[in-house]
Amino acid sequence: DSWHDTVDGIELELHGADEELLKLAKELLKRGVSEEEVRRIIEELLK
């Protein structure tokens, strides 16, 4: 799946992010949310 590559990229960027955020990112990508949107959501949550 192409979203796996996206998640791997996000995981590299979010090496400090907790497991729950990564699960959320994967779930959003699986549901068709764009990579940009996922990054934006996670950045908001990390604030």
Rank of each mutant, 00 (worst) to 15 (best):
D18S: 15
G9K: 14
S34W: 02
L14M: 08
L12C: 04
G9P: 12
A17R: 08
E19C: 04
E37D: 09
G32L: 01
I42T: 00
E11D: 14
E20K: 10
E44L: 08
L21H: 04
A25K: 03
L46T: 05
T6A: 11
G9V: 11
E43R: 11
K23G: 03
E37F: 02
D18E: 05
V38A: 02
G16I: 14
L28P: 00
L14V: 08
L46G: 03
L45Y: 11
L21K: 01
E36R: 06
D1A: 12
E27Q: 05
D8C: 04
T6F: 14
K23H: 04
E20Y: 15
D18A: 09
K30W: 06
E20F: 11
H4W: 11
L14H: 05
G9N: 12
G9A: 13
E35T: 09
E35L: 15
R40C: 04
R31L: 15
I10V: 09
H15S: 11
V33E: 04
H15V: 14
V38K: 01
K23F: 05
D8P: 12
G9D: 12
I41A: 02
S34T: 09
I42E: 00
G9Q: 06
A25M: 07
W3I: 12
K30M: 13
T6P: 10
R31Q: 15
W3E: 11
I42K: 00
E35H: 15
E13Y: 01
D18Y: 11
S2R: 07
E20W: 11
I42M: 03
R39K: 10
T6D: 12
E35S: 12
E19P: 10
R40Y: 07
E13D: 11
E20S: 11
R31T: 14
I10M: 13
S2I: 12
H4I: 14
K47I: 11
I10A: 06
T6Q: 13
E36Q: 11
L46K: 06
S34I: 02
D18C: 03
R31V: 11
E27C: 08
E13M: 10
R40E: 05
E27L: 07
S2N: 14
E35F: 13
W3D: 12
